[in-house]
Protein backbone atom coordinates (compact mmCIF):
# COMPACT_ATOMS: atom_id res chain seq x y z
CA UNK A 1 0.00 0.00 0.00
CA UNK A 2 1.80 3.08 -1.16
CA UNK A 3 0.83 6.56 -2.08
CA UNK A 4 2.27 8.12 -5.24
CA UNK A 5 2.45 11.88 -5.20
CA UNK A 6 3.52 14.54 -7.65
CA UNK A 7 6.72 16.56 -7.15
CA UNK A 8 7.80 15.01 -3.86
CA UNK A 9 10.55 16.79 -1.87
CA UNK A 10 11.99 13.42 -0.90
CA UNK A 11 11.99 10.44 -3.21
CA UNK A 12 13.57 7.11 -2.35
CA UNK A 13 13.74 4.39 -4.96
CA UNK A 14 14.65 0.72 -4.42
CA UNK A 15 16.86 1.54 -1.42
CA UNK A 16 18.75 -1.40 0.08
CA UNK A 17 21.28 -1.00 2.88
CA UNK A 18 23.24 -3.87 4.40
CA UNK A 19 25.56 -4.17 7.38
CA UNK A 20 28.04 -6.99 6.71
CA UNK A 21 25.76 -8.77 4.23
CA UNK A 22 22.73 -8.55 6.51
CA UNK A 23 19.99 -6.33 5.07
CA UNK A 24 18.89 -3.49 7.34
CA UNK A 25 16.72 -1.87 4.73
CA UNK A 26 15.31 -3.90 1.87
CA UNK A 27 13.97 -2.42 -1.33
CA UNK A 28 12.43 0.70 0.19
CA UNK A 29 10.40 2.86 -2.19
CA UNK A 30 8.85 5.99 -0.76
CA UNK A 31 8.02 9.63 -1.25
CA UNK A 32 7.27 12.50 1.09
CA UNK A 33 5.30 15.59 0.00
CA UNK A 34 6.32 19.18 0.69
CA UNK A 35 5.20 20.71 3.96
CA UNK A 36 4.44 17.46 5.71
CA UNK A 37 5.39 16.50 9.22
CA UNK A 38 6.28 12.87 8.61
CA UNK A 39 6.97 10.15 11.16
CA UNK A 40 9.11 7.10 10.50
CA UNK A 41 7.59 4.39 12.69
CA UNK A 42 8.70 0.86 13.37
CA UNK A 43 10.04 -1.52 16.03
CA UNK A 44 13.63 -1.54 17.32
CA UNK A 45 16.05 -2.67 14.66
CA UNK A 46 13.60 -1.84 11.87
CA UNK A 47 16.16 0.38 10.17
CA UNK A 48 14.55 3.74 11.03
CA UNK A 49 17.80 5.47 11.95
CA UNK A 50 19.58 3.76 9.09
CA UNK A 51 16.99 5.21 6.70
CA UNK A 52 17.79 8.75 7.89
CA UNK A 53 21.52 8.07 7.89
CA UNK A 54 21.41 6.79 4.33
CA UNK A 55 19.46 9.89 3.26
CA UNK A 56 22.21 12.02 4.86
CA UNK A 57 24.89 9.99 3.10
CA UNK A 58 26.32 8.62 6.34
CA UNK A 59 26.03 4.92 5.49
CA UNK A 60 26.87 3.33 2.15
CA UNK A 61 23.84 2.14 0.19
CA UNK A 62 23.87 -1.21 -1.58
CA UNK A 63 21.39 -0.24 -4.28
CA UNK A 64 18.81 2.34 -5.20
CA UNK A 65 18.87 6.13 -5.13
CA UNK A 66 17.69 9.03 -2.99
CA UNK A 67 16.58 12.39 -4.38
CA UNK A 68 15.94 15.48 -2.30
CA UNK A 69 14.17 18.29 -4.18
CA UNK A 70 14.72 16.04 -7.22
CA UNK A 71 18.51 16.39 -6.81
CA UNK A 72 21.41 14.56 -5.18
CA UNK A 73 22.16 15.46 -1.57
CA UNK A 74 25.49 17.02 -2.63
CA UNK A 75 23.74 19.69 -4.65
CA UNK A 76 21.21 20.66 -1.98
CA UNK A 77 23.20 20.21 1.24
CA UNK A 78 22.63 23.81 2.38
CA UNK A 79 18.89 23.16 2.19
CA UNK A 80 18.97 20.04 4.30
CA UNK A 81 19.11 19.99 8.06
CA UNK A 82 20.01 17.04 10.25
CA UNK A 83 19.51 16.25 13.93
CA UNK A 84 21.51 13.16 14.98
CA UNK A 85 20.55 11.10 18.01
CA UNK A 86 21.34 12.99 21.19
CA UNK A 87 23.41 10.09 22.53
CA UNK A 88 25.72 10.13 19.51
CA UNK A 89 27.95 12.89 20.90
CA UNK A 90 29.96 13.41 24.08
CA UNK A 91 28.09 16.04 26.15
CA UNK A 92 31.14 16.50 28.40
CA UNK A 93 32.84 18.14 25.44
CA UNK A 94 34.23 21.58 26.34
CA UNK A 95 31.76 23.68 24.35
CA UNK A 96 29.06 26.21 25.18
CA UNK A 97 25.45 26.15 24.01
CA UNK A 98 26.06 28.89 21.49
CA UNK A 99 29.18 27.08 20.18
CA UNK A 100 27.03 24.08 19.30
CA UNK A 101 24.21 26.09 17.72
CA UNK A 102 26.77 28.01 15.69
CA UNK A 103 27.80 24.70 14.07
CA UNK A 104 24.52 24.95 12.18
CA UNK A 105 26.05 27.91 10.31
CA UNK A 106 29.29 26.11 9.35
CA UNK A 107 27.78 24.63 6.19
CA UNK A 108 26.99 28.15 4.95
CA UNK A 109 30.36 29.60 5.90
CA UNK A 110 32.70 27.46 3.86
CA UNK A 111 36.39 26.86 4.48
CA UNK A 112 38.45 29.36 6.51
CA UNK A 113 35.54 31.76 7.17
CA UNK A 114 34.77 32.54 10.76
CA UNK A 115 31.14 33.18 11.81
CA UNK A 116 30.01 36.76 11.28
CA UNK A 117 27.61 38.93 13.24
CA UNK A 118 24.71 37.85 11.04
CA UNK A 119 25.46 34.18 11.79
CA UNK A 120 25.47 34.94 15.50
CA UNK A 121 22.04 36.58 15.12
CA UNK A 122 20.70 33.49 13.37
CA UNK A 123 22.08 31.27 16.12
CA UNK A 124 20.61 33.40 18.92
CA UNK A 125 17.27 33.54 17.11
CA UNK A 126 17.26 29.73 16.86
CA UNK A 127 17.95 29.53 20.60
CA UNK A 128 15.01 31.87 21.30
CA UNK A 129 12.73 29.61 19.25
CA UNK A 130 13.53 26.61 21.42
CA UNK A 131 13.35 28.67 24.61
CA UNK A 132 17.05 28.30 25.43
CA UNK A 133 18.31 31.86 24.91
CA UNK A 134 18.88 32.29 28.64
CA UNK A 135 21.32 29.37 28.50
CA UNK A 136 23.43 30.56 25.58
CA UNK A 137 26.69 30.80 27.53
CA UNK A 138 26.16 27.62 29.56
CA UNK A 139 28.54 24.74 29.05
CA UNK A 140 26.80 21.82 27.40
CA UNK A 141 27.96 19.50 30.17
CA UNK A 142 25.57 21.32 32.53
CA UNK A 143 22.41 20.69 30.50
CA UNK A 144 19.61 18.21 31.17
CA UNK A 145 18.58 15.70 28.51
CA UNK A 146 15.67 17.85 27.37
CA UNK A 147 17.86 20.94 27.16
CA UNK A 148 20.47 19.01 25.15
CA UNK A 149 17.77 18.04 22.68
CA UNK A 150 16.60 21.66 22.40
CA UNK A 151 20.17 22.73 21.65
CA UNK A 152 20.39 20.12 18.88
CA UNK A 153 17.08 21.37 17.49
CA UNK A 154 18.31 24.99 17.64
CA UNK A 155 21.40 23.96 15.70
CA UNK A 156 19.18 22.43 13.01
CA UNK A 157 17.01 25.57 12.86
CA UNK A 158 20.16 27.70 12.52
CA UNK A 159 20.87 25.77 9.30
CA UNK A 160 17.83 27.57 7.81
CA UNK A 161 17.00 24.59 5.66
CA UNK A 162 13.81 23.58 3.85
CA UNK A 163 13.83 19.93 4.87
CA UNK A 164 14.70 18.55 8.33
CA UNK A 165 15.70 15.00 9.23
CA UNK A 166 15.53 14.21 12.93
CA UNK A 167 16.69 11.01 14.60
CA UNK A 168 14.62 10.26 17.74
CA UNK A 169 14.25 13.87 18.95
CA UNK A 170 11.77 12.79 21.64
CA UNK A 171 13.91 10.06 23.17
CA UNK A 172 14.54 10.66 26.87
CA UNK A 173 13.19 14.22 27.05
CA UNK A 174 10.77 15.66 29.61
CA UNK A 175 7.11 16.23 28.75
CA UNK A 176 7.49 20.03 28.54
CA UNK A 177 10.33 19.71 26.04
CA UNK A 178 8.36 17.17 23.99
CA UNK A 179 5.40 19.59 23.77
CA UNK A 180 7.69 22.51 22.93
CA UNK A 181 9.45 20.56 20.20
CA UNK A 182 6.28 19.26 18.57
CA UNK A 183 4.63 22.69 18.46
CA UNK A 184 7.79 24.13 16.93
CA UNK A 185 7.86 21.36 14.31
CA UNK A 186 4.19 22.01 13.48
CA UNK A 187 4.97 25.69 13.08
CA UNK A 188 7.84 24.89 10.70
CA UNK A 189 5.61 22.56 8.68
CA UNK A 190 2.94 25.28 8.44
CA UNK A 191 5.59 27.52 6.87
CA UNK A 192 6.08 24.92 4.14
CA UNK A 193 9.16 23.22 5.55
CA UNK A 194 9.24 19.43 5.38
CA UNK A 195 10.09 17.52 8.53
CA UNK A 196 10.94 13.84 8.78
CA UNK A 197 11.14 12.41 12.28
CA UNK A 198 12.19 8.98 13.53
CA UNK A 199 9.74 8.13 16.30
CA UNK A 200 9.03 5.03 18.34
CA UNK A 201 6.04 5.94 20.50
CA UNK A 202 2.89 4.59 18.87
CA UNK A 203 0.61 6.38 21.37
CA UNK A 204 1.59 9.87 20.31
CA UNK A 205 2.41 9.17 16.67
CA UNK A 206 -1.04 9.76 15.10
CA UNK A 207 -1.39 13.11 16.90
CA UNK A 208 2.02 14.34 15.88
CA UNK A 209 2.33 13.39 12.24
CA UNK A 210 0.22 14.03 9.15
CA UNK A 211 2.29 11.61 7.01
CA UNK A 212 3.63 8.26 8.06
CA UNK A 213 6.21 5.76 6.99
CA UNK A 214 5.77 2.32 8.57
CA UNK A 215 9.02 0.45 8.39
CA UNK A 216 10.35 -2.95 9.35
CA UNK A 217 13.41 -3.56 7.19
CA UNK A 218 10.96 -3.48 4.29
CA UNK A 219 8.54 -0.63 3.80
CA UNK A 220 5.14 -1.72 5.13
CA UNK A 221 3.18 1.35 4.16
CA UNK A 222 3.52 5.06 3.65
CA UNK A 223 1.01 7.85 3.10
CA UNK A 224 -1.30 10.25 4.93
CA UNK A 225 -1.71 9.22 8.58
CA UNK A 226 -5.48 8.57 8.40
CA UNK A 227 -4.98 6.20 5.46
CA UNK A 228 -2.03 4.12 6.65
CA UNK A 229 -2.18 4.19 10.45
CA UNK A 230 -4.50 1.21 10.91
CA UNK A 231 -4.50 -2.17 12.66
CA UNK A 232 -3.60 -4.17 9.61
CA UNK A 233 -0.48 -2.13 8.80
CA UNK A 234 0.62 -1.94 12.42
CA UNK A 235 0.30 -5.67 12.83
CA UNK A 236 2.41 -6.14 9.77
CA UNK A 237 5.00 -3.66 11.07
CA UNK A 238 5.20 -4.91 14.63
CA UNK A 239 3.85 -8.45 14.10
CA UNK A 240 5.21 -11.16 16.43
CA UNK A 241 7.00 -13.09 13.74
CA UNK A 242 10.11 -11.86 12.03
CA UNK A 243 9.84 -11.75 8.31
CA UNK A 244 11.30 -14.71 6.51
CA UNK A 245 13.98 -12.52 5.01
CA UNK A 246 15.52 -11.34 8.26
CA UNK A 247 15.23 -14.83 9.72
CA UNK A 248 17.28 -16.34 6.94
CA UNK A 249 19.90 -13.64 7.04
CA UNK A 250 20.21 -14.03 10.81
CA UNK A 251 20.83 -17.76 10.41
CA UNK A 252 23.49 -17.09 7.79
CA UNK A 253 25.11 -14.45 9.95
CA UNK A 254 25.27 -16.74 12.96
CA UNK A 255 26.78 -19.56 10.99
CA UNK A 256 29.49 -17.42 9.51
CA UNK A 257 30.65 -15.76 12.73
CA UNK A 258 29.49 -18.09 15.47
CA UNK A 259 31.40 -16.38 18.28
CA UNK A 260 30.37 -12.87 17.46
CA UNK A 261 27.50 -10.80 18.65
CA UNK A 262 25.42 -9.27 15.88
CA UNK A 263 25.86 -5.53 15.93
Amino acid sequence: MSAEIENPVLEIHDLTVTYSKKPVLWDVDMTIPKGSLAGIIGPNGAGKSTLIKSIMGLVPIASGYIKIFDKDLKEVRKNVSYVPQRGSVDWDFPASVVDVVMMGRYGHLGFFNYPKKADKEVALDALRKVGMDAYKNRQISELSGGQQQRVFLARAIAQQADIYFMDEPFAGVDAATERAIISLLKELADKGKTIVVVHHDLQTAPNYFDWMVLLNTRLVAHGPTQEVFNDENLKETYGGKLTLLSEISKLLENKRFPAREAK
Binding site: K53, M56, G57, L58, R77, V80, Y82, P84, S88, V89, D90, F93, A95, D99, V100, M103, Y106, G107, R155, Q159
Partner: peptide, 13 residues
Protein backbone atom coordinates in the same frame (compact mmCIF):
# COMPACT_ATOMS: atom_id res chain seq x y z
CA UNK B 1 36.14 21.49 16.29
CA UNK B 2 33.08 20.09 14.53
CA UNK B 3 34.59 16.82 13.30
CA UNK B 4 35.82 16.24 16.85
CA UNK B 5 32.50 16.98 18.55
CA UNK B 6 29.98 15.55 16.09
CA UNK B 7 31.42 13.71 13.07
CA UNK B 8 27.99 12.60 11.81
CA UNK B 9 26.70 16.18 11.65
CA UNK B 10 29.98 17.30 10.06
CA UNK B 11 29.68 14.88 7.17
CA UNK B 12 25.96 15.65 6.84
CA UNK B 13 26.82 19.28 6.09
Amino acid sequence: FLTTFDPAFASAI
